[in-house]
Design a protein around this nucleic acid. Structure first.
Lengths: 217, 217
DNA sequence: TTAGTACCGTACCGTTCGGTACCATGTCAA
DNA sequence: TTGACATGGTACCGAACGGTACGGTACTAA
């Protein structure tokens, strides 16, 4: 793992700085990257440009700070049920996870930040992209891995490769939706609560079918 | 469907215009959206800015033309085998499709155009995003649906909802990879031919498991 | 009070970029 | 040859933006 060598990685912000980043996120959600100008942020947050540069270095520093700030806000509560559960309880647990995942990914702030990082990060060594993968993906992954293991301990699931099982789960739950939302499409299956619930159930159905204890892969 | 009411949708380009768009795509792949300046395109393509504005209207027109031009180039050859095949032949057919899909999505030009559309298209009514979904997704979808139907006719697959089956197939094959590549990550499972083949086989395995003729959903 | 600190608001500078205008060159038709 | 047309090259303009500098203000500590 990368031990605190990177720039742009500051995780402690004062309240004032947090408020400024909040305003910047608002601008980003509303108007895209084009709306993130230093003057615009200063105006929206009632702060001076000089403070922006003192706190975050330069414009890229502001963008990176926005990502780390937002990520630090979305600390997923890793609610883990007891290690042994009934199959029904575990399935419900999985559905909650899937629903939470879709909720996060379809959030306006998440979409805006992903659009920012993607639009910015054409070349390898994309700082914002790595930041987003590291801070966003890792947390949900951790939570899911714990969940999957508890499912295996409960005898509901069977798999050799826990990471591969997670990838499959993620694929079945999220699938095509993320990219389509990033491209601006309003995905029907995620609009209302009913359609989303149906999709989640189907996805979990398929996952259970692939990893039920009588299957092996 | 939208009948030729939109602007930005021009599908016929002269050779000279095609060469200019080619140069613009080169710039995009190399340097991201930031590199797409009118002066830069004119310089790279040895044409005048005035010609650019005469042909494409404005900068957004150039971007849209780049997408339609590239899409018109990648016409997928819808190679369809005979309607009735052996299960092994059909599975091989599916693997070829999956491999082609991953090849297209991981191509530098495709990634660059997707990054462009995503970075650009924050707000609903994202012209470039719709263009990309329409021109890109539709073709691969058509090809896959034909393929799936032939699989059903051959008795290898069973499903009620062909579209849902396609979504599952797409999810299992592409999964997380597209977004991660868009974010700048070099996905290990797609680097060398061997790892990719293994991934495709696993994905098709799971797809067959879900939609084999003794399952129902 | 005095000095220091942190911050806001604004003005300013250099650069870049989208878009337009103008001129030169080549080509084709009459 | 002459004139119309398409195109390349260059210069130019106005606006926007990143970044810096400066003055003014509130607060704190000695």
């Amino acid at each position: 793992m990368n031990t605190h060598a990177d720039p742009y990685i500051e995780t402690d912000f004062t309240d004032r700085q947090g408020a400024v980043l909040e305003a910047a996120l608002g601008l980003l959600v509303e108007g895209g990257e084009k709306a993130i100008t230093t003057a615009g942020i200063a105006r929206a947050a009632n702060c001076s440009k000089e403070s922006l540069y003192k706190w975050f270095g330069d414009r890229d520093g502001i963008l990176a700070a926005m990502i780390t700030y937002q990520a630090s806000k979305v600390r997923v509560s890793a609610r883990l049920g007891g290690p042994s559960q009934s199959p029904e309880a575990f399935r419900a647990e999985l559905e909650v996870f899937a629903n939470d995942l879709l909720t996060v990914l379809s959030g306006e702030t998440s979409l805006a930040l992903n659009r920012l990082a993607i639009g910015q990060g054409s070349r390898e060594g994309s700082v914002l992209g790595n930041l987003l993968i590291e801070r966003g993906r890792k947390t949900v992954r951790e939570r899911a891995l714990v969940l999957l293991q508890s499912g295996q301990l409960a005898g509901v699931l069977r798999f050799n490769d826990r990471a591969a099982a997670f990838d499959t789960l993620y694929s079945l739950v999220v699938g095509d939706f993320h990219v389509r939302m990033l491209l601006g499409e309003s995905v029907p299956a995620l609009r209302d609560e009913l359609a989303r619930k149906e999709h989640v159930e189907q996805a979990i159905d398929r996952f259970h079918l692939l990893y039920s204890k009588d299957q092996m892969n």
